[in-house]
Design a protein around this nucleic acid. Structure first.
Lengths: 208, 208
DNA sequence: CTCCCTTGTTTGAACGCTCAATCAAGAGAT
DNA sequence: ATCTCTTGATTGAGCGTTCAAACAAGGGAG
């Protein structure tokens, strides 16, 4: 049960967010949400026309929460932009570790669960992925002078997201952090090589 | 049952494999499978005690089919072990492209759909991931002399799988190949840098 | 202060439908 | 005659959704 002080609509949304993350969308029944939120079906359908609209509202909430609830805490005390990228990945690692590799990224889970062409939901998932990648791209742009000249920071940001999602997927399946750690370590190695190459290029430009 | 078309059990398995890949496990009903396979519910339950056992059998079939149905065709005419890694990724790209980014890797889809602690199924998914990564590791081990000394090929193989799964996930969500291509391009760049570094190390060892 | 009417919210039983799973009966081959 | 496999109607639970009824709070009017 979620706290009873909050208005019903919010209680339902938080309950749904929690359950969708834990059990997925299809396997979470309306009854599950109602029990978790301490509400009745009529209340839910007073605020949301269908179950899908609950999902949409949850995704909106998640989109708006990326910065304040995820990035801000992960980046507290971390100034270096490249370190920030890996601090973000470390935050996901912590989530995995704290839940015995049960849940990693809710967006990823829901993304692969939706197979039907469900335009509004897919759109919302796209927006969530894009927001995440855009924040990472922001870091990379700040570190542009430490990356090889002409580095495609958008492409690299997508690659970071790819590494996170792929690593989470495998770690959840194996119920071990090994795959996630292996992926992040490889990504770190890649970044180290990019930074070294950038330095080498700079030296060459000014004449060794 | 001696001659004639495929036996019922196989028809059911192929139908289930197809539908699980297209629509996912939870959203595929027994009735869907029966219609696709042209069978009756009694027949299905004659061979498989529960729906979950159908899934397990499908995953077994998939595990056994990785080499003959995926790797062998992808590697035909490709001898270089590193090229083979990217030929495999190109095969997935083709699958995505041919289906308008609708389905990529069935294992990944099912892996994120299963949230409950479902030991036998998770075990089978683990085995599938491991088999895939082991084949990639085989390639990398063959190319060991072209990679930096001390390269952890298992870790790198996991990273390749991570890149594939993460890229597929995003491309399916955006219904665009961009994220997949961006991920593979980044991985390619990483490999190029590894190979260059290996050459540099070798030169240094023999004294430039 | 009291009465009525309105507006927004909550209640929980009920509905129609789909689902996974069952079962008794029968077909076909050996 | 036996064993394997098939048929398809049937079961009962659970699903998303609906609905009429109740409730709480407020604002004018008397």
């Amino acid at each position: 049960m979620v706290g009873g002080g909050e208005p019903t609509r919010e209680r339902i949304l938080f309950a749904a967010l929690k359950l969708f993350s834990e059990k997925g969308f299809n396997t979470t029944s309306i009854a599950d949400i109602l029990k978790e939120a301490g509400a009745n079906s009529g209340s839910l359908y007073h605020f949301f026309p269908t179950k899908q609209d609950v999902l949409l509202a949850v995704l909106e909430m998640y989109r708006d929460g990326i910065y304040p609830m995820l990035l801000a805490p992960a980046w507290e005390g971390v100034e270096d932009p490249i370190d920030r990228v890996f601090a973000l990945l470390a935050a996901y690692r912590r989530m995995l570790a704290d839940t015995d590799c049960l849940y990693g990224c809710p967006i990823g889970s829901i993304a692969l669960e939706l197979h039907e062409p469900d335009p509004p939901v897919r759109e919302m998932l796209s927006v969530n992925f894009d927001g995440w990648a855009r924040h990472v791209k922001g870091c990379l742009d700040q570190a542009r002078d430490r990356l090889p000249p002409g580095t495609d920071t958008k492409r690299l940001a997508i690659f970071v997201l790819t590494t996170m999602e792929g690593g989470v997927m495998q770690s959840r399946t194996h119920r071990t952090l090994e795959a996630f750690d292996a992926s992040i370590a490889s990504l770190r190695d890649y970044f180290d090589r990019l930074v070294v190459a950038a330095v080498a290029d700079a030296q060459q430009e000014t004449g060794t």
